[in-house]
Every structure is written in C-alpha cells, then in structure tokens.
Amino acid sequence: MAILEWIRFLVGAAFLLGGLTVFGIELFGVFHYKYVLNRMHAAALGDTLGIALCMLGLVIFSGFNFTSVKMILVVVFLWFASPVASHMVARFEVSTNEEIEKECEIDKGEE
C-alpha cells in the first residue's frame, strides 16, 4: 500500500506544482505585457487552468469526500464566473479609454 500512497503523493504534488507554475506564468504575463487588454489574457490563465490544476491536486490528496466536492464546485463556479468577469473588465476598458486607437485596432462597424 505504501507504493500507492507514494503514487498519490507524487501525482498530487505534480498537479499542485503545475498549478503553481501556471500562476507563475500568469504573473510573468501580467508584468510583461504593456496594456490591460493584453494583460487580461495572462490573468485569465490562473483563474481557469491554474486553480483547476491546484484543486485537482488537492482532490487527489484528500480523496473523494464532501471537501473535494466543494473544491470541484469552486472550480466550476470560477469557470462560469471568470469569463464574465473578463468580459466586464474588457467592456469597461474599451468604453472608458478615449485613446484606445493608439493601443489596438477596433472594429467600428457595430457602434
């Protein structure tokens, strides 16, 4: 049984560290890009993939019980909520920035 425990530990740790790496990439992107609409791509990475990997690792650690169900619920909730939050932020940025033509091309056909 010891080997099974070790396998569980290693797989879980791999997922957790993978999530941590994603968070690091997210942070790098946020500091690397120069404009909000570019930064948002990096920031949305952690909201979806990063937290999913971390929670998957923790679910593997804890086994299948009520706690892990709640963790999966967090991930599902964020997968619903994060794109909408990004949409709101992008809409906010586009509608309040007066010099947006300097940063990117926008399609003026609709408005």
Binding site: F77, F80, A81, V84, H87, M88, R91, S95
Partner: peptide, 15 residues
C-alpha cells in the same frame, strides 16, 4: 450605466 448585458444575464441566471 450599460443596460442588459446579455452575457452577464445568462451567467447570473445560473449563478
């Protein structure tokens, strides 16, 4: 304020 954001409405319907 912007009204009737359809994306927000659809997700709020679930959340």
């Amino acid at each position: 304020e912007p009204k009737n954001d359809i994306i927000l409405q659809k997700v709020a319907f679930f959340l």
